[in-house]
Design a protein around this nucleic acid. Structure first.
Lengths: 152, 152
DNA sequence: AGTCGATAGTTGCATGTGTAACTGTTTTGT
DNA sequence: ACAAAACAGTTACACATGCAACTATCGACT
Protein backbone atom coordinates (compact mmCIF):
# COMPACT_ATOMS: atom_id res chain seq x y z
CA UNK A 1 0.00 0.00 0.00
CA UNK A 2 1.68 3.10 -1.24
CA UNK A 3 0.84 6.25 0.63
CA UNK A 4 2.23 9.70 0.16
CA UNK A 5 1.08 12.82 1.91
CA UNK A 6 2.52 16.10 0.67
CA UNK A 7 2.37 18.34 3.72
CA UNK A 8 2.31 21.46 1.56
CA UNK A 9 -1.15 20.36 0.52
CA UNK A 10 -2.44 19.13 3.87
CA UNK A 11 -4.85 21.75 5.11
CA UNK A 12 -4.76 21.12 8.87
CA UNK A 13 -0.99 21.29 8.81
CA UNK A 14 -0.91 24.51 6.83
CA UNK A 15 -3.52 26.01 9.11
CA UNK A 16 -1.52 25.23 12.23
CA UNK A 17 1.71 26.47 10.75
CA UNK A 18 0.26 29.73 9.51
CA UNK A 19 -1.44 30.38 12.81
CA UNK A 20 1.75 29.71 14.71
CA UNK A 21 3.79 32.02 12.52
CA UNK A 22 1.30 34.86 12.83
CA UNK A 23 0.38 34.51 16.47
CA UNK A 24 3.96 34.12 17.62
CA UNK A 25 4.87 37.39 16.05
CA UNK A 26 1.93 39.13 17.63
CA UNK A 27 2.51 37.47 20.99
CA UNK A 28 6.04 38.83 21.01
CA UNK A 29 4.56 42.34 20.91
CA UNK A 30 2.20 42.16 23.85
CA UNK A 31 4.57 40.08 25.89
CA UNK A 32 7.26 42.69 25.44
CA UNK A 33 4.86 45.52 26.25
CA UNK A 34 2.98 44.11 29.24
CA UNK A 35 4.51 40.76 30.11
CA UNK A 36 1.22 38.95 29.68
CA UNK A 37 0.88 35.38 28.49
CA UNK A 38 -1.22 34.13 25.63
CA UNK A 39 -4.13 32.97 27.79
CA UNK A 40 -4.02 36.33 29.54
CA UNK A 41 -4.15 38.19 26.25
CA UNK A 42 -7.11 36.13 25.15
CA UNK A 43 -8.94 36.78 28.38
CA UNK A 44 -8.22 40.46 28.04
CA UNK A 45 -9.50 40.50 24.49
CA UNK A 46 -12.79 38.82 25.27
CA UNK A 47 -13.39 40.70 28.46
CA UNK A 48 -12.55 44.02 26.85
CA UNK A 49 -14.92 43.37 24.03
CA UNK A 50 -17.85 42.11 26.06
CA UNK A 51 -17.49 44.49 28.97
CA UNK A 52 -18.37 41.81 31.49
CA UNK A 53 -18.71 38.06 31.30
CA UNK A 54 -17.95 34.82 33.10
CA UNK A 55 -15.02 32.43 33.08
CA UNK A 56 -17.04 29.73 31.39
CA UNK A 57 -18.02 32.05 28.58
CA UNK A 58 -14.39 33.04 28.07
CA UNK A 59 -13.50 29.39 27.77
CA UNK A 60 -16.27 28.74 25.31
CA UNK A 61 -15.32 31.62 23.06
CA UNK A 62 -11.59 31.12 23.13
CA UNK A 63 -11.28 27.33 22.93
CA UNK A 64 -9.31 27.53 26.17
CA UNK A 65 -9.51 24.90 28.87
CA UNK A 66 -11.28 26.08 32.00
CA UNK A 67 -8.18 25.71 34.16
CA UNK A 68 -6.30 27.94 31.75
CA UNK A 69 -9.02 30.53 32.04
CA UNK A 70 -9.08 30.21 35.81
CA UNK A 71 -5.36 30.91 36.02
CA UNK A 72 -5.44 33.74 33.53
CA UNK A 73 -8.26 35.40 35.45
CA UNK A 74 -6.35 35.02 38.70
CA UNK A 75 -3.24 36.54 37.13
CA UNK A 76 -5.10 39.54 35.74
CA UNK A 77 -6.85 40.06 39.06
CA UNK A 78 -3.52 39.97 40.87
CA UNK A 79 -2.25 42.72 38.63
CA UNK A 80 -5.29 44.82 39.43
CA UNK A 81 -6.68 44.70 35.92
CA UNK A 82 -9.74 42.62 36.60
CA UNK A 83 -12.43 42.40 39.29
CA UNK A 84 -14.85 39.67 40.23
CA UNK A 85 -18.38 39.96 41.51
CA UNK A 86 -20.55 37.07 42.63
CA UNK A 87 -23.91 36.68 40.98
CA UNK A 88 -26.77 37.53 43.33
CA UNK A 89 -29.12 34.84 42.09
CA UNK A 90 -26.69 32.02 41.29
CA UNK A 91 -23.72 32.08 43.56
CA UNK A 92 -21.73 29.64 41.47
CA UNK A 93 -21.28 32.31 38.85
CA UNK A 94 -18.64 35.01 38.98
CA UNK A 95 -19.09 38.05 36.84
CA UNK A 96 -15.80 39.41 35.57
CA UNK A 97 -14.93 42.86 34.35
CA UNK A 98 -11.91 45.02 33.78
CA UNK A 99 -10.96 47.63 36.32
CA UNK A 100 -10.18 51.18 35.22
CA UNK A 101 -6.49 50.41 34.87
CA UNK A 102 -7.35 47.15 33.14
CA UNK A 103 -9.46 49.04 30.65
CA UNK A 104 -6.56 51.39 30.00
CA UNK A 105 -4.25 48.46 29.26
CA UNK A 106 -6.91 46.92 27.08
CA UNK A 107 -7.11 50.11 25.05
CA UNK A 108 -3.40 49.87 24.36
CA UNK A 109 -3.61 46.19 23.52
CA UNK A 110 -6.50 46.79 21.17
CA UNK A 111 -4.51 49.49 19.40
CA UNK A 112 -1.57 47.12 19.04
CA UNK A 113 -3.88 44.47 17.64
CA UNK A 114 -5.40 46.82 15.10
CA UNK A 115 -1.97 47.95 13.96
CA UNK A 116 -0.80 44.40 13.68
CA UNK A 117 -3.79 43.37 11.65
CA UNK A 118 -3.45 46.32 9.32
CA UNK A 119 0.20 45.42 8.72
CA UNK A 120 -0.71 41.79 8.12
CA UNK A 121 -3.40 42.69 5.63
CA UNK A 122 -1.01 44.92 3.78
CA UNK A 123 1.72 42.29 3.74
CA UNK A 124 -0.41 39.56 2.28
CA UNK A 125 -2.60 41.86 0.18
CA UNK A 126 -6.29 42.61 0.38
CA UNK A 127 -7.26 39.89 -2.07
CA UNK A 128 -5.51 37.19 -0.07
CA UNK A 129 -6.86 38.61 3.19
CA UNK A 130 -10.41 38.44 1.89
CA UNK A 131 -9.89 34.88 0.68
CA UNK A 132 -8.44 33.87 4.04
CA UNK A 133 -11.40 35.36 5.86
CA UNK A 134 -13.86 33.55 3.64
CA UNK A 135 -12.09 30.25 4.24
CA UNK A 136 -11.90 30.78 7.98
CA UNK A 137 -15.57 31.69 8.11
CA UNK A 138 -16.44 28.36 6.52
CA UNK A 139 -14.34 26.46 9.03
CA UNK A 140 -15.82 28.38 11.93
CA UNK A 141 -19.33 27.71 10.71
CA UNK A 142 -18.75 23.97 10.44
CA UNK A 143 -16.57 23.34 13.44
CA UNK A 144 -17.50 25.76 16.17
CA UNK A 145 -20.79 24.17 17.04
CA UNK A 146 -19.31 20.71 17.36
CA UNK A 147 -17.39 19.21 20.20
CA UNK A 148 -14.37 20.96 21.63
CA UNK A 149 -14.17 19.37 25.07
CA UNK A 150 -10.57 19.30 26.16
CA UNK A 151 -7.57 17.89 24.47
CA UNK A 152 -4.46 19.09 22.82
CA UNK B 1 -9.12 57.00 23.91
CA UNK B 2 -11.86 54.67 22.86
CA UNK B 3 -10.71 51.32 21.59
CA UNK B 4 -12.77 48.39 20.51
CA UNK B 5 -11.52 45.20 18.96
CA UNK B 6 -14.14 42.80 17.62
CA UNK B 7 -12.47 39.43 17.88
CA UNK B 8 -14.64 38.00 15.13
CA UNK B 9 -12.74 40.28 12.79
CA UNK B 10 -9.27 39.87 14.22
CA UNK B 11 -7.39 37.66 11.81
CA UNK B 12 -4.68 36.21 14.07
CA UNK B 13 -7.33 35.19 16.57
CA UNK B 14 -9.53 33.56 13.96
CA UNK B 15 -6.56 31.78 12.50
CA UNK B 16 -5.56 30.31 15.85
CA UNK B 17 -9.07 29.28 16.71
CA UNK B 18 -9.74 27.62 13.38
CA UNK B 19 -6.44 25.77 13.50
CA UNK B 20 -7.16 24.56 17.01
CA UNK B 21 -10.62 23.32 16.13
CA UNK B 22 -9.38 21.43 13.09
CA UNK B 23 -6.16 20.03 14.46
CA UNK B 24 -7.72 18.89 17.72
CA UNK B 25 -10.20 16.82 15.86
CA UNK B 26 -7.53 15.28 13.72
CA UNK B 27 -5.20 14.74 16.67
CA UNK B 28 -7.91 12.78 18.42
CA UNK B 29 -7.82 10.31 15.52
CA UNK B 30 -4.14 9.49 15.44
CA UNK B 31 -3.85 9.56 19.20
CA UNK B 32 -6.61 7.03 19.49
CA UNK B 33 -5.11 4.85 16.76
CA UNK B 34 -1.41 4.91 17.69
CA UNK B 35 -1.03 6.84 20.90
CA UNK B 36 1.34 9.33 19.36
CA UNK B 37 1.64 12.95 20.39
CA UNK B 38 1.36 15.94 18.15
CA UNK B 39 5.13 16.48 17.79
CA UNK B 40 5.45 12.79 17.00
CA UNK B 41 2.81 13.00 14.32
CA UNK B 42 4.56 15.98 12.77
CA UNK B 43 7.87 14.21 12.79
CA UNK B 44 6.26 11.17 11.20
CA UNK B 45 4.66 13.29 8.52
CA UNK B 46 7.84 15.05 7.49
CA UNK B 47 10.00 11.98 7.68
CA UNK B 48 7.51 9.90 5.74
CA UNK B 49 7.32 12.46 3.03
CA UNK B 50 11.03 13.13 2.66
CA UNK B 51 12.20 9.55 3.14
CA UNK B 52 15.19 10.63 5.16
CA UNK B 53 16.22 13.91 6.75
CA UNK B 54 17.75 15.45 9.89
CA UNK B 55 16.31 16.74 13.14
CA UNK B 56 17.19 20.31 12.27
CA UNK B 57 15.34 20.11 8.99
CA UNK B 58 12.29 18.72 10.76
CA UNK B 59 12.37 21.66 13.12
CA UNK B 60 12.72 24.11 10.27
CA UNK B 61 9.80 22.70 8.33
CA UNK B 62 7.44 22.21 11.23
CA UNK B 63 8.01 25.34 13.32
CA UNK B 64 8.87 23.04 16.20
CA UNK B 65 11.50 23.84 18.79
CA UNK B 66 14.56 21.66 18.49
CA UNK B 67 14.07 20.11 21.90
CA UNK B 68 10.59 19.09 20.88
CA UNK B 69 11.99 17.45 17.77
CA UNK B 70 14.72 15.76 19.77
CA UNK B 71 12.17 14.22 22.13
CA UNK B 72 9.81 13.19 19.37
CA UNK B 73 12.64 11.49 17.50
CA UNK B 74 13.70 9.66 20.66
CA UNK B 75 10.13 8.49 21.25
CA UNK B 76 9.69 7.18 17.71
CA UNK B 77 13.05 5.45 17.88
CA UNK B 78 12.07 3.79 21.14
CA UNK B 79 8.98 2.40 19.48
CA UNK B 80 11.08 0.97 16.69
CA UNK B 81 9.63 3.23 14.04
CA UNK B 82 12.69 5.31 13.31
CA UNK B 83 16.41 4.71 12.90
CA UNK B 84 19.40 7.03 13.11
CA UNK B 85 22.59 6.95 11.14
CA UNK B 86 25.54 9.24 11.69
CA UNK B 87 26.79 11.20 8.72
CA UNK B 88 30.14 9.90 7.50
CA UNK B 89 31.57 13.30 6.63
CA UNK B 90 30.04 15.45 9.38
CA UNK B 91 29.55 13.52 12.54
CA UNK B 92 27.37 16.16 14.15
CA UNK B 93 24.61 15.26 11.76
CA UNK B 94 22.24 12.37 12.27
CA UNK B 95 20.32 11.08 9.29
CA UNK B 96 16.87 9.90 10.24
CA UNK B 97 14.60 7.48 8.45
CA UNK B 98 11.60 5.30 9.14
CA UNK B 99 12.09 1.62 9.74
CA UNK B 100 9.93 -0.91 7.89
CA UNK B 101 7.36 -0.95 10.67
CA UNK B 102 7.57 2.83 10.89
CA UNK B 103 6.81 3.07 7.20
CA UNK B 104 3.81 0.80 7.67
CA UNK B 105 2.45 3.03 10.42
CA UNK B 106 3.12 6.07 8.27
CA UNK B 107 1.08 4.56 5.47
CA UNK B 108 -1.87 4.23 7.82
CA UNK B 109 -1.40 7.74 9.16
CA UNK B 110 -1.20 9.17 5.67
CA UNK B 111 -4.42 7.40 4.75
CA UNK B 112 -6.10 8.82 7.84
CA UNK B 113 -4.87 12.28 6.93
CA UNK B 114 -6.15 12.04 3.38
CA UNK B 115 -9.55 10.88 4.58
CA UNK B 116 -9.68 13.67 7.11
CA UNK B 117 -8.78 16.30 4.56
CA UNK B 118 -11.34 15.00 2.10
CA UNK B 119 -14.02 15.18 4.78
CA UNK B 120 -12.94 18.68 5.74
CA UNK B 121 -13.04 19.89 2.16
CA UNK B 122 -16.48 18.46 1.74
CA UNK B 123 -17.75 19.98 4.96
CA UNK B 124 -16.64 23.50 4.18
CA UNK B 125 -17.16 23.23 0.43
CA UNK B 126 -14.68 23.40 -2.42
CA UNK B 127 -15.05 27.13 -2.90
CA UNK B 128 -14.22 27.88 0.71
CA UNK B 129 -11.39 25.36 0.66
CA UNK B 130 -9.83 27.01 -2.34
CA UNK B 131 -10.15 30.43 -0.73
CA UNK B 132 -8.59 29.17 2.47
CA UNK B 133 -5.67 27.70 0.57
CA UNK B 134 -5.09 30.93 -1.30
CA UNK B 135 -5.08 32.91 1.92
CA UNK B 136 -2.76 30.48 3.67
CA UNK B 137 -0.40 30.54 0.71
CA UNK B 138 -0.08 34.30 1.06
CA UNK B 139 0.67 34.05 4.77
CA UNK B 140 3.21 31.31 4.19
CA UNK B 141 4.92 33.33 1.50
CA UNK B 142 5.26 36.40 3.71
CA UNK B 143 5.98 34.83 7.06
CA UNK B 144 7.92 31.65 6.52
CA UNK B 145 11.14 33.29 5.49
CA UNK B 146 11.18 35.59 8.50
CA UNK B 147 12.23 34.88 12.03
CA UNK B 148 10.69 31.99 13.88
CA UNK B 149 13.32 31.40 16.53
CA UNK B 150 11.63 30.10 19.61
CA UNK B 151 8.86 31.44 21.69
CA UNK B 152 5.33 30.77 22.61
C1' DA C 1 48.53 23.63 14.21
C1' DG C 2 45.47 26.26 17.19
C1' DT C 3 41.95 29.27 18.73
C1' DC C 4 37.39 31.16 18.08
C1' DG C 5 32.88 30.93 16.55
C1' DA C 6 29.14 28.32 14.46
C1' DT C 7 26.35 24.16 14.22
C1' DA C 8 23.75 19.47 15.49
C1' DG C 9 21.78 17.59 19.02
C1' DT C 10 20.78 16.52 24.18
C1' DT C 11 19.68 17.49 28.99
C1' DG C 12 18.62 20.16 33.66
C1' DC C 13 15.49 23.13 35.40
C1' DA C 14 11.64 26.03 35.93
C1' DT C 15 7.23 26.96 34.07
C1' DG C 16 2.86 25.90 31.63
C1' DT C 17 -0.89 22.73 30.85
C1' DG C 18 -4.48 18.91 31.04
C1' DT C 19 -6.73 15.38 33.78
C1' DA C 20 -9.02 14.15 37.58
C1' DA C 21 -10.67 15.11 41.84
C1' DC C 22 -12.53 18.43 44.78
C1' DT C 23 -15.82 22.36 46.92
C1' DG C 24 -19.85 24.70 46.79
C1' DT C 25 -24.15 25.64 44.55
C1' DT C 26 -28.30 24.93 41.75
C1' DT C 27 -31.45 22.09 39.13
C1' DT C 28 -33.94 17.85 38.10
C1' DG C 29 -36.70 13.91 39.06
C1' DT C 30 -39.40 11.35 41.96
C1' DA D 1 -38.81 17.42 50.33
C1' DC D 2 -34.84 14.95 49.13
C1' DA D 3 -31.50 12.39 46.64
C1' DA D 4 -29.01 12.55 42.41
C1' DA D 5 -27.21 14.76 38.63
C1' DA D 6 -25.43 19.00 36.61
C1' DC D 7 -22.72 23.04 36.74
C1' DA D 8 -19.07 27.14 37.95
C1' DG D 9 -14.85 27.33 39.38
C1' DT D 10 -10.32 25.86 41.87
C1' DT D 11 -6.50 22.88 43.08
C1' DA D 12 -3.13 18.71 43.27
C1' DC D 13 -0.42 16.10 40.53
C1' DA D 14 1.82 14.36 36.53
C1' DC D 15 3.42 15.44 32.16
C1' DA D 16 4.83 18.43 28.30
C1' DT D 17 7.46 22.42 26.91
C1' DG D 18 10.95 26.33 26.34
C1' DC D 19 15.13 28.28 27.70
C1' DA D 20 19.72 28.04 28.91
C1' DA D 21 23.64 25.45 29.37
C1' DC D 22 26.05 21.59 27.90
C1' DT D 23 28.82 18.07 24.70
C1' DA D 24 30.68 17.15 20.52
C1' DT D 25 31.99 18.35 16.02
C1' DC D 26 33.22 21.23 12.19
C1' DG D 27 34.83 25.40 9.61
C1' DA D 28 37.37 29.80 9.37
C1' DC D 29 40.95 32.76 10.28
C1' DT D 30 45.58 33.73 12.07
Amino acid sequence: MKASLPLEEFLPYRLVRASELVSRRFAARYQAAYGISRPEWRTFAILGQLGHTTATEIGRRSTMHKTKVSRAVAALEKRGWLSRRADAADRRIEHLELTASGAAVYAELAAMARDFQAALREEIGEVAAAALEAGLAAVEARYTSCEAPEED
